[in-house]
C-alpha cells in the first residue's frame, strides 16, 4: 500500500498589484476504496476563507476571494495519500454482451455525459480511426487498451506546443501535446466507440525510473467497463492508471477539472509557476527542500482575462471588450 507525500505549489506573480481576485481550486484528492487521504494542508497566501462544495461530478471544489491589492498568490497544497491497487478487469464476459450493456447505458446519468462528444471538425475521421483499430471480437477493455496505446504511439510528448484551451482538432493536426491533450484524444476515441469515458486530473507518483507528467499536475482518462466500473488509462505513459496515480477530480474534460483557476482585476502580465513533487518518506512533507526529484517549473500563461494583443493598453482592451459584449447580449 504505497503512501505518497505530495507537495503542489501554484504561484501566480503579477507585474503590478491586482485586486478583487476570485479563485477556484480542485485540489482535494478523491476519497474512495482505493485512495485514502491521511492528511491534507492547504495554505494560501493572505489566508483567505476557503469555501468548499461538491460539484456536479462529485469533486470537492474550493473557492476563495482575495480583495486587497496583492502581487502574488501562492497556493500550497500538502497531501499525504495512501493508495491501493484496484484489481484489473476479469474481462470474462462475451464481448457482444458487454457492448450491449454499454449501449443500454447510453441514456443513463452519469454515463450520458461521458458518452457525448462535443462536435469538432475531425470528428468523423477520428471515429473512423478508432473503429479501424478495434477488431470485431474485441471487448471494451481490449479496445480501451488499444486506444491508449494508439495515442501513446502516434502522438509526441512535447511541452509548450499546446495550451489549456487547445482544441482536439489542433492536437490531431499537431500530433503532439502534453498529458492533457493525450487524455482529451483518448476520451474522444472511447466516446465515439460507445465506451463512456472521463477525464481525470491528478498526480503521477512514479517509481524511481521517472515518468512523463512529473513536476506538474497530471491528467489521464478513465473508461467505463461493464461489471467492472471505471478503469484508469494513462495514454501519456501507456499504462493502466492505478495505485501510482492519485486522482484529484473527474469530469468531461479539462475545463471541469482545472486544478487552479482565477480571475482578477488590474495588472497586465502575470506568470504562473507550478511545482509538484512527490516523496515517499515521512520527512518529505517537511519544509526542508529534500524532494525526491529535482524540481521542474512550468511557465504557462493561463487564459483568464489576459490577452496578448498589446497594441492597445489593457484599459482600452477592457473597454472595447465591454462595448462588444454589451452589444452581443440580446
Amino acid at each position: 500500500m504505497p503512501i505518497f507525500k505530495i507537495k503542489h505549489i501554484t504561484n501566480y506573480k503579477y507585474e503590478t498589484p491586482v485586486r478583487d481576485s476570485a479563485n477556484q481550486v480542485i485540489l482535494f484528492p478523491i476519497k474512495d476504496d482505493y485512495q485514502k487521504v491521511v492528511k491534507h494542508d492547504l495554505n494560501i497566501s493572505g489566508s483567505p476563507e476557503i469555501e468548499i462544495f461538491i460539484d456536479y461530478y462529485g469533486n470537492e471544489v474550493g473557492t476563495f476571494t482575495q480583495n486587497e491589492p496583492h502581487t502574488q498568490l501562492k497556493i500550497f497544497s500538502k497531501v499525504c495519500v495512501e493508495t491501493s491497487p484496484k484489481p484489473l478487469p476479469q474481462d470474462d464476459m462475451f464481448g457482444n454482451e458487454q457492448w450491449n450493456r454499454l449501449d443500454a447505458l447510453k441514456y443513463e446519468v452519469p454515463y450520458i455525459d461521458y458518452l457525448r462528444q462535443e462536435v469538432f471538425e475531425g470528428i468523423a475521421q477520428l471515429k473512423e480511426t478508432a473503429l479501424s483499430i478495434k477488431q470485431d471480437e474485441d471487448t471494451p477493455y481490449q479496445t480501451a487498451i488499444k486506444y491508449s496505446a494508439h495515442v501513446f504511439n502516434n502522438f509526441e510528448y512535447i511541452k509548450g506546443v499546446t495550451a489549456v484551451d487547445t482544441t482536439i482538432d489542433e492536437i490531431l493536426k499537431l500530433e503532439a501535446g502534453v498529458c492533457q491533450d493525450f487524455a482529451h484524444v483518448l476520451t474522444a476515441m472511447l466516446r465515439l466507440t460507445g465506451i463512456p469515458s472521463r477525464y481525470v486530473s491528478g498526480y503521477i507518483c512514479p517509481n524511481r525510473d521517472g515518468m512523463r507528467g512529473e513536476g506538474a499536475t497530471h491528467a489521464w482518462a478513465e473508461a467505463y467497463l461493464p461489471e467492472y466500473g471505471w478503469l484508469g488509462l494513462d495514454p501519456t505513459n501507456n499504462c493502466i492508471a492505478n495505485e501510482n496515480h492519485v486522482r484529484l477530480a473527474v469530469g468531461r474534460n479539462f475545463a471541469d477539472c482545472s486544478p487552479v483557476k482565477g480571475v482578477y482585476k488590474g495588472g497586465f502580465e502575470h506568470i504562473m509557476e507550478v511545482n509538484v513533487s512527490v516523496g515517499y518518506n515521512d520527512e518529505d512533507l517537511n519544509d526542508n527542500e529534500t524532494y525526491f526529484k529535482p524540481t521542474e517549473v512550468n511557465y504557462s500563461k493561463p487564459s483568464a482575462t489576459v490577452t496578448n494583443v498589446r497594441k492597445q493598453n489593457s484599459y482600452q482592451q477592457y473597454m472595447e471588450a465591454i462595448q462588444q459584449q454589451q452589444q452581443q447580449q440580446q
Binding site: A22, T63, K261, Y264, A321, Q325, Q330
Partner: peptide, 28 residues
C-alpha cells in the same frame, strides 16, 4: 439583464467583463 454565460467569468465564459467573478459562489 446579463446572460448566464457572462454572469461569472470564474465559472462561465472567462473572457466576460460584464459579470462578477465569484458571483456563483455567493449564489450557491
Amino acid at each position: 439583464r446579463v446572460d448566464d454565460d457572462y454572469i461569472d467569468p470564474l465559472v462561465f465564459n472567462p473572457n466576460s467583463v460584464l459579470g462578477v467573478a465569484g458571483l456563483m459562489g455567493a449564489y450557491r
